[in-house]
């Protein structure tokens, strides 16, 4: 219980720093900056208090906003994927209820984990770029940015999760 809180707090701080100091300055092909901090939402334990997840992801997004001067863009998007995380996972696994206590992202088939990460990443990026451009005229820019940035976010998050989490 306590080690889980500690682990998640360290992950929170580590991901924010990694995001704002490294990944916000990558500028791959001139403009792609992957948002890897949302891995925190993917990995947050399912059995934990739902309110804690919502408040935590709001603060996570807000801390990234603080560093990148973007109002509440990241906070809004991160909070949204935290809220829809469970329904989406239930739909992907086609189960109405599963064993929260023993649930581990690494134990379900890889294709389903991949689908789960892809869906949440696309939703998150779509909200972020829409709020950032804040105009219907920029639909094409929003669309391209969402697709290309998502590809790199997904690759990096999957690699990160495979490398840094234990398969029990």
């Amino acid at each position: 219980m306590n080690s889980s809180i500690g682990l998640n707090s360290i992950r929170f701080i580590g991901l924010v720093l990694l995001q704002v100091l490294v990944f916000n300055h990558i500028n791959l092909f001139g403009y792609i900056n992957p948002f890897i901090y949302i891995v925190w939402v993917f990995l947050f334990p399912f059995r934990k208090n739902k309110a804690l997840l919502l408040i935590g992801s709001f603060l996570l997004g807000l801390s990234v906003d603080f560093f990148s001067d973007s109002g509440g863009v990241n906070a809004a998007a991160t909070l949204f994927i935290a809220f829809v995380r469970l329904p989406i996972l239930k739909t992907i696994l086609r189960k109405s209820d599963f064993d929260y206590l023993l649930f581990n992202l690494r134990l379900i088939p890889f294709s389903k984990t991949f689908l789960y990460i892809t869906t949440l990443t696309l939703i998150h990026h779509f909200i972020v770029f829409n709020l950032e451009y804040f105009s219907f005229n920029a639909f094409l820019s929003v669309f391209y940015n969402t697709i290309f940035t998502s590809i790199f976010t997904i690759i990096l998050s999957v690699l990160g999760i495979l490398l840094f989490t234990k398969k029990k």
């Binding site: 309110a51 919502l54 408040i55 709001f58 997004g61 807000l62 906003d65 973007s70 109002g71 509440g72 863009v73 906070a75 809004a76 909070l79 949204f80 809220f83 709020l131 804040f134």
Partner: peptide, 18 residues
């Protein structure tokens, strides 16, 4: 309700930022 409250707050910050 918690989600709604925080989301409104975040969107308000965004609009204010623009």
């Amino acid at each position: 309700l918690l989600f709604l409250l925080l989301e409104i707050l975040a969107v308000a910050l965004t609009i204010q930022h623009h």
